[in-house]
Design a protein around this nucleic acid. Structure first.
Length: 476
RNA sequence: GGCCCCAUCGUCUAGUGGUUAGGACAUCAGGUUCUCAUCCUGGUAACCGCAGUUCGAUUCUGCGUGGGGUCACCA
């Protein structure tokens, strides 16, 4: 069937902050829907009341927006397929689960958690994959009796025996599992909430989702979903399982253990949303001409899930840093200034920000580098004496600083006059250019790497420069 | 361990039954320069292994190896 409309979705659970990997998946779902003039749906999968985190739903919405993306239907937007929060759809799932039982596609199970644990343990002991032993599957009368006496029950999928379960993955082609490896999955929990597996299938179908783009970690549970589509007699959507991001060391999928992974944390560390998005775009996918700096519009134009590489990819922080720098350098300075606001230290004079930016913007890899790069523009600094004396002697440095103080004291303070004064001194005394300039730089800033010397000195101000020169003089 | 997926420079990728296997990041060297950064030039660096198909395989097939994912009344 050819779909004339495309509907994609992102279905996060409100159990914490959104992972960077999830944001990469949001981007793909968003882009593909836009490409086809379709809709991107946001659905909240809050079926685990134990793990639910207060405020997480708001944070999910905020972070998607902060990255410059948006959804067409979902919380805060409405839409024709609502509600978009699963806890508000419980009746639907209960009804669908019962329907499966009635059609002999599912069954009640009263096994206790303890018994299930024992079963799994014994299977593990026999080196078999841990699965439910299907005790209740063939004795429903007994189970119903237990339930009548007040026993708690769940509803399980009646997985067919020895049957190929296949589905098409846009990225990998056909994937087939044998149903014997598929557990009799719990569909409806004893607290009345559905499990993920029931809820996604019911909702993806009910919300008319045409393309499911989700993380690769879902591949192994997809047969359960396929079996459910078949049990309901529903047409399956198209799947595209997006490879996971691996830790920068290449070992295992990106996780908290090896660094901060929330989408929010990258913003907090001074990465621009545009750069992040661009980085996600080219991780595991390439523009036809291998263009790497791409706008969202260009991405939307060219992106197709079938072109996504099937292999998991290392999250290369170095390349992200490079890309972030590219975006920062592209920014009009006024815009950079406003984006920089949260990263400007309180003690840094506001009026000096705009003056300092032309000097440092191309040295900024992340917005958070601002503090470090501008630390010497105001206030007290420490001047490393050993740097002052590098490639020279105490006597000479003494002489040089003294001469600088004298030459700078009575000039009108401008870049040109400073430059003239310093250059004249160097030429007149035939001092080694590199040594002398570096010494002045260190005396003026305390650092050996700074923006151009004269501009920097001019901005620091005459009074402060003379003070620092005197400070240096005393140190040598 | 079972099941599933994957395999081109260190990393992300392009690519073809016959190519000097291309690009980007990183790295190295040089240029510009008062340092750093930017910018410009150039270099090092890859088809996992073994069979098979073929006149010819990096490309197709099988096996092996390696990596990843997953095995809950969590998503």
């Amino acid at each position: 069937m050819t779909t004339t409309h495309v509907r994609t979705r992102m279905a996060p659970s409100p159990t914490g902050d959104m992972h960077v990997g999830s944001m990469g998946i949001v981007l793909k779902n968003y882009a593909y829907a836009k490409k086809h003039g379709g809709s991107f749906v946001l659905r909240i999968e809050d079926t685990d009341k134990v793990r639910e985190v207060e405020g997480a739903v708001d944070r999910i919405q905020d972070i998607i927006t902060a990255y410059g993306l948006d959804w067409d239907e979902g919380p805060g937007k409405g839409g024709d397929f609502g509600p978009y929060i699963q806890s508000q759809r419980i009746d639907l799932y209960t009804q669908m689960a019962r329907e499966l039982v009635e059609n002999d596609k599912a069954y009640y199970c009263t096994c206790s958690k303890e018994r299930l644990e024992e079963v799994r343990d014994s299977m593990r002991a026999q080196k078999l994959p841990p699965k439910y032993d299907q005790r209740c599957r063939n004795q429903q009368e007994l189970v119903l009796g237990e339930m009548a006496n007040g026993a708690q029950a769940v509803i399980r999928l009646k997985t067919p025996k020895d049957q190929d379960v296949s589905f098409t993955d846009l990225i990998r082609g056909t994937i087939t599992f044998n149903s014997n490896t598929v557990d009799d999955q719990v569909l409806l929990k004893s607290d009345g909430y559905p499990t993920y597996h029931l809820a996604v299938v019911v909702d993806d179908h009910g919300m008319d989702i045409t393309h499911i783009m989700r993380g690769e970690e879902w591949i192994s549970s997809t047969p359960k979903h396929v079996l459910l589509y078949q049990a309901f007699g529903w047409e399956m959507p198209v799947f595209a399982h997006i490879p996971v991001y691996l830790n920068p060391d290449g070992k295992g999928k990106m996780s908290k253990r090896k660094g901060t992974v929330s989408a929010q944390s990258f913003l907090d560390r001074g990465y621009l949303p545009e750069a992040l998005l661009n980085f996600f775009m080219i991780l595991g996918w390439a523009h036809p001409d291998e263009k790497e700096i791409l706008s969202l519009e260009e991405y939307i134009q060219y992106f197709d899930p079938k072109d996504v590489s099937p292999k998991s990819v290392v999250f290369d922080m170095k390349k992200l840093d490079w890309m972030n720098g590219m975006y920062i350098r592209q920014l009009p300075l006024e815009e950079l200034e406003s984006k920089l606001q949260p990263f400007i230290p309180e003690e840094f004079p506001k009026e000096k920000v705009a003056l300092v930016l032309p000097l440092i913007f191309e040295r900024l890899e992340k917005l958070s580098d601002f503090a470090e790069l501008t630390s010497f523009f105001q206030g007290e600094i420490t001047i490393p004496t050993d740097l002052l004396l590098k490639k020279s002697s105490v006597d000479q440095v003494n002489e040089q600083i003294t001469a600088c103080i004298e030459a700078l004291t009575n000039i009108e303070w401008s870049i040109e006059t400073i430059e003239t004064a310093i250059r004249n001194l160097q030429e007149k005394n035939d001092w080694k250019k590199k040594q002398f300039f570096m010494m002045v730089r260190v005396a003026a800033t305390g650092k050996k790497a700074t923006p151009p010397l004269f501009e920097t000195m001019q901005l620091i101000g005459k009074e402060a420069i003379l003070q620092r020169l005197n400070q240096s003089l005393q140190q040598v």
